[in-house]
């Protein structure tokens, strides 16, 4: 009977103040979806790092006039180097084939270059991809070396962009979160005011504090959980229509977002939203309903 009482109080409370409830839910939805997006992005950057670090290579380009002795000396050094995991030699012809493949859409560009003009290179995988500087220092001045390029540095730029987007969405999440909490506090005040007679009687006859406060707190939690469901829905829509829709090309470059991670956002967002708004409601009540 008490559960039924509390539940009906919650629903009546939300309905009585329905415009505020909607405002509360919208801000919660935006805030929580931003939080969810930045969490997903965090996971994503992690996964991409792991993925690309396996693939990432250091390219040591050789000079056009490199002698076979210089080449084999380099090859020997690289094979003996403890920093190096794998070495792969790419000759002019292979470089040309790769070039053709990469720029197959730009015929003019392919035709303007011949195999002889392509640089030879050693493609080196490092045991620890972060050791690029050491490799660079050791081989930069070696005979026959033209330049050393670290793919990781290119990748880092991608990560920087992702990191910036992530920070931005966290900031939006925080700002909207504050707005949502203020709305929760306001809603609870209005609810407590509209039920002040009931509250006064309950205090008078000795209803326990949790019993008096529970409907108000649950009202806030209910709105937060609804908001988190909407936020989760928003994430799904984003994945289906944006990441796998209009941004398909970019998504292929990045690693795809797992459904598992998206589903995981539901309990996380509901938990975070529910807990924070319950605490906000409870703190607000401590000011408005004194024993």
């Amino acid at each position: 009977m008490r559960a039924k009482y509390v539940l009906s109080e919650v629903l009546v409370g939300l309905w009585r103040n329905v415009t505020m409830t909607i405002a509360m839910m919208i801000t919660m939805t935006v805030s929580l979806s931003m939080l969810g997006a930045s969490l997903l992005m965090y996971r994503q950057v992690d996964k991409m790092r792991a993925y690309y670090y396996q693939e990432v290579e250091v390219s040591i380009y050789l000079k056009g006039d490199v002698t076979p002795e210089q080449r084999s000396a380099l090859d020997g050094r690289l094979h003996a180097d403890p920093l190096v995991k794998e070495v792969f030699y790419e000759d002019k012809q292979m470089a040309y084939e790769n070039f053709q493949k990469m720029f197959q859409d730009a015929k003019d560009m392919v035709e303007s270059v011949s195999a002889a003009e392509m640089p030879e290179s050693f493609r080196v995988k490092l045991n620890d991809p972060k050791q690029f500087t050491a490799i660079n220092q050791q081989y930069r001045e070696a005979e026959g070396v033209q330049s050393i390029v670290d793919q990781q540095q290119l990748l880092q730029k991608v990560f920087d962009v992702l990191g910036a987007i992530q920070s931005l969405s966290l900031i939006v999440a925080a700002v909207m979160g504050i707005a949502a909490l203020l709305l929760v506090a306001n809603t609870i005040q209005v609810a407590a005011y509209s039920k002040r007679r009931e509250v006064a009687v309950m205090k008078l006859v000795g209803a326990s504090n949790w019993f008096i406060q529970m409907p108000f707190v649950l009202e806030a939690v209910f709105a937060a959980v609804l908001g988190s469901l909407l936020a989760g829905g928003l994430l799904i829509v984003t994945k289906v229509f944006v990441l796998e829709g209009s941004l398909q090309a970019l998504t292929n470059l990045l690693t795809p977002v797992d459904w598992g991670d998206v589903w995981l956002m539901f309990p996380i967002l509901a938990g975070v939203g529910g807990l924070i708004s319950a605490m906000t409601a409870w703190i607000t009540l401590r000011f408005y309903i004194r024993v």
Binding site: M1, R197, V201, I212
Partner: peptide
């Protein structure tokens, strides 16, 4: 406790007003 201004809940009947005091301290219907 009773007061000068009665402090009844206007949207509840006499029965409900009294029953409310029991229900909120956990007594069954």
């Amino acid at each position: 406790c009773v007061f000068q201004d009665f402090r009844l809940l206007p949207n509840k009947t006499a029965y409900e007003n009294v029953a409310f005091a029991l229900e909120v301290i956990g007594k069954s219907k």
